[in-house]
Design a binder for these strands. Structure first.
Length: 375
DNA sequence: AACGCGTGGCG
DNA sequence: TCGCCAAGCGT
């Protein structure tokens, strides 16, 4: 265990003093779906016991470490996250380290992961923990949920995984598993089904004392067996209870509403060199990805008149949700007065730069070749 | 409630 | 190449 965090701390008995599971012994009969959900729990737990991957953040119950992993894993695959998480935990092993770090260092550690507001929210939350919780990670679902960047899912995940609290989680994996198990073909984003999924997830997590394992079992099953496309049903511990499988409808469930079309969009960026240096600027506040370094461009600054029919040195395409963006890099020899920082090639490594701009920079000639290229 | 946000992998 | 997808959140 390479971390300096309080790793492998055994699950403290105090977590079990909570009044749960609440025995549902009312006169009203339970809805069949909830009964079915409870029946699944032992199978899920025993399957997880055998098949859980050995992921680095599963070797600790430090809420800080688990928090970082949960934020990194939002809309991001496990394989991508692992090296980032390892690096982050070495660089900023505690809430205090994160709160005190320079924002630019935080961005640098996040560089390439995308959805960069996650990184800014992490640091804002760390400061909040310092101020409101004396640097101690909060241990109630409500207090966790109140931190910036932590929504209902992440609050449930940290509560259950780090503190073993009986808090439900509904993420993409859980949506897939539950809609398939219960044969629900409605749009899982619709409020009605959403509520039912959260209710089922709650029943599940309240049916065991190992809340951490149960919730992770759901996600693990979704990630490794119950794939979006061509699920591996033969390896599924609950296949006999799966309505979608019985109806041969796993490819139809969960229903996915059509996505919005992406629009094409071009941005001119300017390759401005002086000797062996290249001009970079920090993305200004108010723009997305504020704080990252980039080449001057006509998105965040004024355009520069280019000679007619000038060809870009290179182009890089990348897509964000709505736009397919083409960055076209033009060599500019006589820029109007632009603010920025003249950087040597080797300095670029230490600055936070988004993946799209990194790609662009890699494709550009070295700065000292400027004269020849821009003639 | 619907939209915007990054990136890399896959068929 | 293209569209879809991955441990969501804030507005």
């Amino acid at each position: 265990m390479p971390l300096s965090t309080p790793a492998n701390r055994p699950c403290n008995g105090k977590y079990f003093d909570n009044p749960f599971p609440v025995p549902q012994r009312s006169a009203v009969p339970q809805p069949p779906a909830q009964r079915k959900a409870r029946r699944l729990v032992p199978r899920l737990l025993s399957w997880y016991g055998k098949h859980a991957r050995d992921l680095p953040w599963r070797r600790t119950r430090d809420p800080y470490a688990i928090w970082i992993s949960e934020i990194m894993l939002q809309q991001t695959q496990v394989a991508t996250v692992i090296p980032y998480w390892e690096r982050w935990m070495r660089a900023l092993p505690t809430v205090n380290h994160l709160a005190r770090a320079k924002p630019e260092r935080v961005l640098k550690l996040w560089e390439g992961l995308g959805y960069y507001s996650r990184a800014r929210n992490l640091q804002a939350a760390a400061n909040q923990i310092l101020k409101n919780h004396q640097g101690q990670f909060p241990n109630t679902p409500e207090a966790i949920r109140a931190l910036p960047g932590i929504g209902r899912y992440t609050a449930g995940a940290i509560s259950s995984i780090a503190f073993n609290l009986p808090e439900p989680i509904v993420d993409g994996n859980v949506i897939r598993i539950l809609t398939r198990l219960f044969g629900r073909r409605e749009d899982p984003k619709a409020k009605v089904l959403q509520n039912e999924l959260w209710s089922l997830a709650e029943t599940l997590v309240r049916s065991t004392e190992d809340c951490a394992a149960l919730n992770q079992a759901l996600m693990e099953l979704g990630a490794t067996v119950c794939h979006p496309r061509s699920p591996n049903c033969k390896d599924c511990p609950v296949k006999r209870s799966c309505t979608a499988r019985k109806d041969n409808a796993t490819h139809l469930i969960p229903t996915a509403p059509p996505r919005a079309r992406t629009e094409a969009r071009s941005i001119e960026v300017y390759w401005i060199t002086r000797g062996n240096r290249i001009l970079l600027q920090k993305r200004p506040k108010g723009f997305h990805n504020a704080g990252f370094w980039e080449l001057p461009n006509n998105e965040t600054g004024p355009g520069i008149p280019l000679p007619p029919q000038s060809e870009p040195l290179t182009t890089v395409r990348h897509t964000i949700t709505k736009y397919r963006i083409q960055l076209m890099a033009y060599a500019v020899t006589k820029p109007r007065a632009l603010k920025g920082r003249w950087c040597r090639r080797d300095e670029l490594e230490s600055l936070p730069i988004t993946a799209a701009h990194r790609k662009l920079l890699r494709q550009l000639p070295a700065p000292n070749e400027a004269a020849q290229t821009t003639a």
